[in-house]
């Protein structure tokens, strides 16, 4: 099939048919903030950070789940989008308890980096300060729900790549939270193979290897795409 030509922020860009807008945008060297997207996993369009304006469409569309089409004219960084992205990051920081100063991921955290990227220097909303649990029943990993942004990358990594679907989401609204098995302690999970892929996929300090302290959890989410590629190529 013929390549598609589209205009992204004024630049003419060509893209492969069936490619997502996000891929085309990145190929054009433009950075759009993302959080729930992770190369190698399916997309869910949940975080809304990658929303872009497409001329002729009434609603903003998530770049990660929109397919390129011929003649599309896309704006990725209008003042309106900048303001929405900042507000979304503010809402996330206000939702749970992010204390970067004592977090294992500090310095390697996607949320922290996003704050800088969207210019969020303070949160105008009231902090909800929920009382969230920490589960360190697993011998190798822990989850601190105070830092979870509900991107479901762990859920998808465990389901789509490891193939065991230990994680899922329970509860509604701000009470939604990730669970292991049927909401049992992670350490009691009979499905978890301790492969660590959820930990690799997690963009924040929510899932961490046990024994690391402040700032010691490296960011290694790109390894998920590597694993997927390796399987495809039978490396």
């Amino acid at each position: 099939m013929a390549a598609k030509t589209l205009t992204i922020d004024g630049h003419l860009v060509s893209a492969r048919p069936g490619e997502t807008l996000l891929a085309a945008i990145r190929e054009a060297g433009i950075t759009v903030p993302t959080l729930c997207h992770l190369d190698g996993l399916s997309d869910v369009g949940a975080c809304r950070l990658c929303l872009v304006e497409i001329e002729g469409q009434r609603r903003l569309q998530p770049a990660c789940m929109t397919m390129v089409s011929e003649g599309m004219v896309v704006h990725t960084n209008t003042p309106r989008l900048q303001s929405y992205r900042r507000q979304i990051i503010e809402l996330l920081f206000a939702e749970r308890n992010h204390v970067c100063a004592v977090c294992v991921a500090s310095g390697h955290c996607e949320l922290q980096r996003l704050a800088g990227m969207v210019g969020m220097d303070h949160v105008r909303y009231e902090y909800l300060s929920p009382n969230c649990p920490v589960d360190i029943s697993h011998p190798r990993f822990g989850i601190d729900h105070n830092r979870c942004v509900l991107c479901t990358r762990c859920v998808r990594a465990c389901d789509e790549i490891e193939g065991v679907h230990t994680w899922d989401v329970a509860g509604r609204g701000v009470n939604a939270h990730v669970i292991t098995d049927l909401n049992q302690p992670w350490g009691a999970s009979t499905t978890c193979t301790s492969c660590g892929k959820c930990q690799l996929a997690c963009p924040t300090g929510a899932i961490f290897p046990r024994g690391v302290t402040v700032g010691e959890r490296p960011h290694a989410s790109e390894r998920i795409a590597l694993i997927v590629e390796a399987r495809k190529q039978r490396w």
């Binding site: 902090y127 300060s129 009382n131």
Partner: peptide
């Protein structure tokens, strides 16, 4: 600093009520 900007460690008590 973070405590002034976000509450930070000082605000760790908030979830306790």
């Amino acid at each position: 600093g973070d405590c002034a900007v976000t509450g930070n460690v000082t605000a760790l008590r908030n979830p306790l009520g």
